[in-house]
Simulated assay, not measured.
Amino acid sequence: MSRRTSNSSSPVRCASCAQALDYAARARVLTDSSGLPSGPACYTSALVEGTASRTDLALARARSGVEASRQEDSQVFLSRNLFALGHLLLVTGRPKEALEALEEVRDLEALQQVHDPSVLRWHPDMAESLVTLGHLEKAHELLTSTRRTATDLGRPSVLPALERVHALLDAAHGHYDTAARRLTDAADRLGHLPIERGRTLLALSHTERRGRRRANAREAAQNAADLFTAHEAHPWAQAAADSLNRLERNPPHNSDRPRLTQAEQRCAQLAAGGASNRDIAAALTVSVKTVEATLTRVYRKLGVHSRVQLAHTVGPGRE
């Protein structure tokens, strides 16, 4: 049973979302009726429902799986449910909480002596959380070491997701052209995994918009929306639709807004990712008053009035 439930999320990676939802529901029924540990079924349901159904329900499944696995003293499925929880927290805009969950996954894998990054692919999500929170050096170190390990072990399937996050790191440094090339190349290598390809195209759309190439941003977002819709990945389809709506809603003259300085850009990205002024000050090694003054300049330059609007304007990769 554990093996079945741990692998039944595979149809999601191949984009058979309806089939994956059916598998997950059957796994829960079998688990409940037979009295088996609930951690495996919670893990499967969290990943599948987060891709194909509702992220709020998926988060509840992941949290239940974490609690059950702790009670059952199952380190294997504790790490898996924490991975699902971290992933879902990241994609729903809570990178600080996501990082906490994913750091525990890392620690658990170290205890279990798991070194293969293809076993449980938490590394790209952890790196993305670090980028979103402004910990760019730590993100770079994680991406570099994971790429080296994947290459040494012959795990090329791990690399496109790492490239996607490396592109977000490039964008965080203001290198939008380099980021767009990375994302385009990664998307081209993900034709066999439509959901991952769509996620990469959505990141490309955000990067192109930040690089002031609105037509390219629309095309990438539309391609992502088409993929997600065709494969019934409803939360991601909604995210792509929201990106398209924002592109249509924001007037073209916004592309002529003043560019932010590097310090302003990093401060804005941290704020957009949900970090408090105190967290930003600690991350950038400045005072809280300096953060407040910097954000005031950012708001004035970008013509925004809240952190929600700021996230729509400068949030890395996903908004």
Rank of each mutant, 00 (worst) to 15 (best):
29 V>L: 14
46 A>L: 06
78 L>C: 10
82 L>D: 14
80 R>G: 09
72 E>Y: 11
78 L>F: 11
25 A>E: 13
52 A>G: 15
37 P>F: 11
24 A>T: 03
27 A>S: 12
45 S>Q: 12
67 E>W: 07
69 S>H: 09
70 R>I: 14
43 Y>I: 14
66 V>I: 11
55 T>N: 08
34 S>M: 00
77 F>P: 01
69 S>Q: 02
58 A>G: 12
76 V>I: 14
60 A>G: 01
70 R>C: 10
80 R>T: 06
74 S>W: 05
85 L>F: 01
42 C>Y: 13
74 S>K: 00
80 R>W: 14
35 G>M: 06
59 L>A: 12
32 D>V: 12
42 C>P: 00
82 L>K: 08
39 G>I: 02
66 V>F: 04
65 G>C: 03
71 Q>T: 13
65 G>E: 01
69 S>W: 06
57 L>K: 13
38 S>D: 05
51 T>F: 11
47 L>Y: 08
61 R>K: 09
24 A>G: 14
62 A>C: 02
64 S>K: 03
62 A>I: 02
46 A>S: 10
75 Q>A: 13
29 V>S: 11
38 S>N: 04
39 G>P: 03
51 T>N: 12
28 R>A: 10
75 Q>S: 15
62 A>K: 00
34 S>E: 10
54 R>P: 04
63 R>S: 04
44 T>Q: 13
59 L>P: 09
50 G>R: 03
49 E>I: 02
33 S>W: 07
29 V>W: 06
73 D>S: 07
37 P>T: 05
37 P>V: 05
37 P>Y: 11
55 T>I: 11
85 L>P: 05
81 N>T: 06
44 T>C: 15
47 L>I: 06
60 A>S: 13
70 R>H: 10
72 E>T: 01
74 S>A: 12
66 V>D: 09
85 L>C: 06
62 A>V: 03
24 A>P: 11
77 F>C: 08
36 L>E: 06
66 V>W: 10
40 P>A: 06
83 F>T: 04
63 R>Q: 05
58 A>S: 11
40 P>R: 08
56 D>K: 12
38 S>I: 03
47 L>V: 00
68 A>Y: 01
68 A>V: 03
47 L>N: 13
49 E>A: 08
25 A>R: 15
30 L>V: 02
59 L>F: 11
39 G>E: 05
25 A>Y: 04
60 A>T: 01
71 Q>H: 10
54 R>G: 14
84 A>M: 06
50 G>D: 04
83 F>M: 07
41 A>T: 02
31 T>R: 07
63 R>G: 04
65 G>I: 00
37 P>N: 09
54 R>Q: 13
29 V>A: 15
60 A>E: 10
36 L>T: 11
66 V>M: 07
71 Q>L: 08
81 N>C: 15
62 A>E: 01
75 Q>H: 12
48 V>Y: 13
70 R>D: 10
48 V>P: 09
52 A>C: 14
71 Q>C: 01
63 R>A: 04
33 S>Q: 15
74 S>Q: 04
